[in-house]
Design a protein around this nucleic acid. Sequence first.
RNA 1: GGCGGGAUAGCCAAGUGGUAAGGCCGGGGUCUGCAAAACCCCUAUCCGCGGGUUCGAUUCCCGCUCCCGCCUCCA
Length: 467
Amino acid sequence: MAVQFFDTYTRKLETFVPLDPAGKIVKLYTCGPTVYNYAHIGNFRAYVFEDLLQRHLEARGYDVQRVMNLTDVDDKTIRGCRNLGVRLADFTKTFKDAFFADLDTLRIKRAQAFPAATDYVERMIEMIRDLEAKGIAYQAEDKSLYFRISKFADYGKLAHLNLDELRPSGRIANDEYEKESVGDFALWKAWDEADGDVRWDSPWGPGRPGWHIECSAMATALLGDELDIHCGGVDNIFPHHEAEIAQTESCTGKKFVRTWLHCAHLMVDGGKMSKSAGNFFTLRDLIEKGWTGREIRYALITVNYRLPLNFTLDEGLPAARAALGRIDEWARRLAETAASAQPGTIAPEMAALVEGFFTALDDDLNISGAMGQLFDLIRDTNRALDSGALDAAGAAAVQAAWQRMNSVLRFEADAVAIPAEVTELLAQRQAARAAKNWSESDRIRDAIAALGWVVKDSKDGPKLSPK
RNA sequence: GGCGGGAUAGCCAAGUGGUAAGGCCGGGGUCUGCAAAACCCCUAUCCGCGGGUUCGAUUCCCGCUCCCGCCUCCA
């Protein structure tokens, strides 16, 4: 089966065909964070989904060229740095660094480029000048520049909005006095006192770029005028991505994006995550509560991206932990049986499950279907291991298949270094057990526990795990 | 009001015009000096409600109810 995605623009499942004539390169642009705070798990749901997308495309042989922007100038970043009395760049650096650390925690593969908006202001100005020359951008009384949406016939197509029927929402009610039309959006925001020293010179006076133009400028600068895939959260569909299309296509005259993918929101305990509801979590909050990055990754990635994800601390995360433990144990047994054997031929039933894993992902990243195949494979190999039907070469073959699947999932256990002291104690305990000296054995177990390790005597010998 | 998504076992969730994957929890068993773990097995006559089409619908059509999101700068 060919890879197919549900495209937001057409609202249909579309077979994925890259722009690259060789069918190899995939140009992927993913909307990144605004670095004014630590990112929350809702943000990371989107980034984890994009990671799954990239990794699966790579597993299918594509060369994915991905760009993720960092919005390091906007109302919130300006407010943040002024509140602290520090320079904007210093303020945002804290959160850029934190963001990258968080990506690592969640095992999210780095994009090729993470352009920061403040590094592309010149290019944004060029695009706005172009739009102004074409009569699409205009400067209003407040000196800001706006995009005249009446000049872009397709405006609203992505969101499937009929702009004539837009019902003004409360929060925009009182700042529409300068614009020609309510729907016109800012390309350039004229400086005002609240901006402090955050300002760039432009043909229209000092100011700073609007949010939407940043993605248009950076995406085209780094990936070209046409992209294969552009992702974001559903809340970006309108107006952000709509605006990106309007600006970019007005400048380039080409179709900006082939496929639009948007992930649904994350909810916490059945409700919208919000600070006031007390269910707002950054990644760091969960790490502090004792959850690991891969457990959170599991909880975020195993629900299809188009479905709202109900994130629960007392159900979802423990379930993630238990499921990962099962995978760990299976991988451990496989490795033990395979030892250093060369992979043999994988049994046909097992090969079918592995194929099923990837073909499920081909179908709009059907992760639930894929996980079903993986757990079937786990059960089947455990059975074969129990009955002795799987030899070293067979186990090595399954192990190789797991490595392929894991290159997409990245669920493998963290390597833990066991201190020599603990290893020594364990050997002593084994000797005591062989001599049936149970009191000594239990005493050593307690000593090992005091060092932070738990001993469990499995059928295959004692196992150590960090407490 | 407009647009969009959803409703499948205690929880998460896949899926098909032919009679329900998988995970977690729970129950049983194997193993075991003890403890713990691990592994195996079992666990929805039923897929929001009411109609219709059909030999047959959870899956197609119509209507309804409920939930969630977006409607101008929140992933």
